[in-house]
Design a protein around this nucleic acid. Structure first.
Length: 204
DNA sequence: TCATTAATCGAAG
DNA sequence: CTTCGATTAATGA
């Protein structure tokens, strides 16, 4: 069973609505917690993480997006401040469309607007599943929850061949576990054939 | 090769 | 499960 995967919007179309491509270096901040949501962002190249820090200073990653994915859209239809930071994990090219232009684009292209609804809907659905799994005290469930979540962004659903392209530290920051715990639990899961590990790469 | 970053491990709490 | 300390592997200049 697979749902429609999220579409990305044509670059030229975004450009015709004053979309501009910006290049960011690794580690550069695209927006930070507390900023107003003023743009629609779509990744042309690179990777971006959305994170925040708890009061102990421990990083918690909300999500990591890659090529052709958009991010921060959930705040686009509200007058709110971002509750998270967006930081580049590598050199990236990102197209940025001013909010009002983007809303105009949606008015003129209803099919894109509908597609976006489908996309937001799907993300919300998996986010709920993710949240449920993350509230578990069982680390295996947290890791499985995260991997299912990541897998939901891609259509292919073969067994143990989806490459989790995250470092163990990033997985730890996404699940609220410690790196060592992630490593140990991952190995245990491999023994139970819940996943495969080849050259340190995680295949789920 | 040197330095930096990520992955591992073992022991203790 | 987390923390600490220490080692080893991988990557890049």
């Amino acid at each position: 069973m697979k749902t429609i995967s999220c579409m990305n919007i044509d670059t030229e179309l975004l450009r015709s609505f004053d979309g501009e491509i910006k290049e960011y270096k690794k580690g550069e901040i695209i927006f930070r917690e507390g900023d107003h949501a003023l743009y629609y962002f779509q990744i042309e190249e690179g990777k971006v993480k959305l994170n925040n820090y708890n009061d102990d200073g421990k990083e918690f990653i909300q999500n990591i997006f890659g090529k052709n994915q958009s991010f921060g859209d959930s705040m686009l239809f509200l007058e709110k401040f971002y509750p998270i930071n967006a930081i580049c994990l590598e050199g990236s090219k990102i197209i940025r469309v001013p909010k009002n232009n983007f809303l105009e684009l949606l008015r003129i292209h209803p099919e894109i607007s509908l597609g976006m609804n489908a996309c937001l809907s799907q993300r919300l659905y998996y986010k709920i599943l993710m949240t449920q799994n993350m509230s578990s005290t069982n680390p295996v469930l947290r890791l499985k929850g995260l991997m299912e979540y990541l897998k939901s962004y891609y259509e292919d659903d073969c067994q143990h061949c989806f490459h989790i392209e995250l470092t163990r530290q990033q997985i730890a920051n996404l699940t609220g576990l410690r790196v060592e715990t992630v490593i140990r639990v991952l190995k245990r899961m491999e023994k139970e054939s819940l996943l495969k590990i080849v050259n340190r790469k995680i295949l789920y």
